[in-house]
Design a protein around this nucleic acid. Sequence first.
RNA 1: GCCGCUGUGGCGGAAUUGGCAGACGCACACGACUCAAAAUCGUGCGGGAAACCAUAUGGGUUCGACUCCCAUCAGCGGCACCA
Length: 804
Amino acid sequence: MSAPYNHKAIEQKWRSNWQKTPVNVNDGKKPKYYCLDMFPYPSGNGLHVGHWRGYVISDVWSRYKMLQGYYVIHPMGWDAFGLPAENYAIKMGVHPAKSTAENVANIKKQINDIAAIYDWDMEVNTTDPAFYKWTQWIFVKMFKEGLAYEKEFPINWCPSCKTGLANEEVVNGCCERCGAEVTKKNLRQWMLKITKYAERLLADLDKLDWPEKVKKMQSDWIGKSYGAEVDFSIDGREEKITVYTTRPDTLYGATFMVLAPEHALAASLATPEKKEAVEKYIYDASMKSNVDRLQDKEKTGVFTGSYAVNPLNQAKIPIWLSDYVLADYGTGAIMCVPAHDDRDFAFAKKFDIPIIQVIAKDGKEIENMTQAYTDANGTMIHSGEWNGMESAVLKKEAPHIIEKRGLGKATVNYKLRDWVFSRQRYWGEPIPIVHCPKCGNVPVPEEELPLQLPNVESYEPTGTGESPLAAIEEWVKCKCPSCGSDAKRETNTMPQWAGSSWYFLRYVDNHNDQELVSKEKADQYLPVDMYIGGVEHAVLHLLYSRFYTKFLYDIGAVDFEEPFHKLFNQGMITGKNGIKMSKSKGNVVAPDDLVRDYGCDSLRMYELFVGPPELDAEWDDRGIDGVSRFLKRFWKLALDSKEANVSATPEMVKLRHKLIYDITQRLESFSLNTVISGFMEYNNRLMEIAKKAGGIDVETIETFLILMAPFAPHMAEELWEVYGHTASVFENQWPKADESAMKDDEIEVPVQINGKTRAVIRISADISKEDALTAGKEAIADKLTGNIVKEIYVPKKIINIVQK
RNA sequence: GCCGCUGUGGCGGAAUUGGCAGACGCACACGACUCAAAAUCGUGCGGGAAACCAUAUGGGUUCGACUCCCAUCAGCGGCACCA
């Protein structure tokens, strides 16, 4: 009788063994592999089984890479500055520094339950002054390069979090963190010129081994479009209005022009009799929130009384103001071609403006147009010298024609906006800038960094647009680092994303107080080979990190331009009916009890078994019994086989190589759920064989152990030791399958008539086509009519007889 | 509105990428062991009496379709007046 599987004792034993003798060590000879988790913010709620899954996936992958002979860099840290941590602290009435430290301790304990091979010597915490010294250093560098600048304009403002937000943090007009409706507030802001990198951020997506979905989200967010800027003169005036259009081919169809109410010329275009209406419209538009502006699908507008002149045919077209034109995209002014644009069509219909079709649909002009014809497919009509051209061709040529004729220029536009970088909150890195009445904005000298966040009693947001830091007079008052006169510190702090935009660089050299990361360490360990985390950061953290890395590349701090070579997005674990796990819904499943009752190995495997790792999965506790039973059966098989000590049969050898082959292939394609089912399947077959043979040979069991080690490391180690080894199971190399040893001499092949299976025959694997067909027909002789049309034999796959 | 993904038993899911649909597991039922239960082991488990019918629905290509093409429906996600 073999000893029963006691997960508690085994897991405790190996946890302490690994602490004494780590399994992932850098001997200086192994190649590196950097496998990174998106680091968590230390929430007070702790981890649930969904967080666990992400960390299990990355740990399984790390251990697999270890067995392939890599030194694996697998660090963990804390994204502890920012809104989530601060809002939690305010709710609990504790200072964020205190609650953050408590939460870190708690989550660290939970993470250790996963038994991942995290190297805690590399740990970083974004709130540690030794860390944020470099977050501030990067800002200073950006300031010196002209990439960080101040600007006052109406920004997105979350009235609940009482802070400004970046565009990326506004989701459907609401705050990404708290869901409150975002309003506008005119504020002086620090901005990062991410737009300068728009083209590189777009172009380099091609180099990345990332999910297409994420690449597409980024490229849509950057939003590149090709078109032309066209200059329209204003009838009776000197100024010109430049419009941006992606459809210069439709220029002859422009019947009016619309300016954003915020356009510089908007007010001055009003003729005396229109003045009142125009001013009212401009005022009303300025009062509208983003959400209102988004929700008002019904077009509004006002005619200025002025006319613009179409540079091609000198036609006079009325100039309107409307808030469907955005002030900060393109030139804030558009030419309107109602026949070929949905929005212009709706506007023209509402205000009774003429519609001129310039692209024929199916070779014809549309009678009684009821909607815009927006395809660029058709022949040009009503378009002067362009008549008869194909619109698709003209669309590409028109910008250059316009440029050549001096009417404007070919141009490119991006939807990406500069990054609103300052927050009116306490819990963040102070922006290291001094406002000097003589010198203007002066950065804190690099040798004086970090500029420490002062410890204060009152850290709640003020809501006035000022950070709580502004109230600390002794901190605000300072001397100008440049001229020494009385000056004031910048009181805004950096957003949550500041630290996370570069933390992955710091892990590998986290104690360096001279450099962000030394060249030596960077060369040795960076960049990240595999990055694992949720998809929710597609245009936030992942875009910001790419921008930061490119900047650091440009100033020579690192010598790669992309931080994350491969990205994997794990799916979310939800509660019943796909409802997101949350404390308020009461459907959170904590891993702690499951680890206690079933063991870490069982939970690790079940986390993967619930479904494809990239898809969302509904959690169901009951399923864990399945993997738990499997582990117990395998445990018994291994111990009984040790006892039986049988030698390998050809069947065992064949199965061993098939096992290696299947598991490796599934692992390589990241199909982790089928790796687990594969283990179960092979275990079932081995148990069948063991029933007859009395056991399984040592080599096959040991092979199974090595393959299983990344998934159930405790059991693998324990059995490895039972099998008489003193070194860790992770000292092994990942086994290789010998494909010739997997070959079957005889195979089963289905025999079909007209595509329907009628029999299954066993034939020799290298049988000739003729013999296969003869054998096949023999097996279904009673069903053959004698009227055979076609005979198909796909070697080792199928026999199909087609008959009438 | 535009773009993308997904749709297979009671449930989670598999299918070597066009070749026996439902692997593996959960749940369930029956049996063995037990005084009994749990645990464990064994058997069954898409529908249908059968011919056959079944991979969201309708069509198509093919000797052969969960897999490819067209249309439709449903669910999820992203973007959303970007000219």
